[in-house]
Design a protein around this nucleic acid. Structure first.
Length: 161
DNA sequence: GCCAACGTTGGC
DNA sequence: GCCAACGTTGGC
């Protein structure tokens, strides 16, 4: 299947790009997603080898900072079963896990970060999910065309990726 | 820090 | 199964 593209949101104070870079192998499981629409993407759609933007939310200005590669497709989020974990979900059970994660590895730091404002001003990105008002989904699909446009805005050539 | 937008919960 | 109340997200 063709590689697909995604956007992963995170608050830099909670888990930012530098946190990911400091993880072993610059890889982490993308845990804590507790929204069913995003869960469905993690569980059913996102595949190993897909690429994603790492987006910093709740900061000034909000921006895309880098890219990640998916290194493992969806599997149950271990934090949902851990009573001591922040994301413990007493209503989930291992027989039928409610929440999923994928593994992502830091790929490229953008030569230039791309702010939400810049994304909004780019006509060709007017239907990109992240620029829509009230778009709170923390894992979002990105089209190949949107990916290419943002990559170029970030000062990366398509060929260099 | 505010608050609009959105998602979820639970009483009925 | 509706919908008011509540909690969270995230731009500003």
């Amino acid at each position: 299947m063709a590689r697909r593209y995604w956007l992963f949101k995170s608050e830099p104070d909670v888990f930012g790009w530098d946190h990911l870079r400091s993880c072993p192998d610059q890889t982490t499981h993308w845990d804590g997603v507790r929204n069913y629409q995003a869960r469905n993407l993690l569980r059913d759609e996102i595949q190993e080898g897909d690429l994603g933007f790492f987006y910093h939310s709740r900061t000034t200005p909000p921006h895309i900072v880098g890219t990640v590669e998916v290194t493992r497709a969806g599997y149950p989020d271990p934090t949902q079963f851990d009573p001591k974990a922040k994301y413990f979900d007493p209503k989930s059970n291992p027989e039928a896990p409610r929440w999923y994660v994928v593994d992502v590895r830091a790929a490229k730091l953008l030569p230039r970060v791309v702010s939400l404002e810049e994304l909004k001003q780019e006509q060709a990105l007017s239907s990109m999910m992240v620029v829509q008002k009230g778009a709170r989904l923390s894992v979002q699909p990105v089209t190949a065309r949107e990916w290419e446009i943002v990559i170029q805005m970030a000062g990366m050539s398509t060929i260099a990726e």
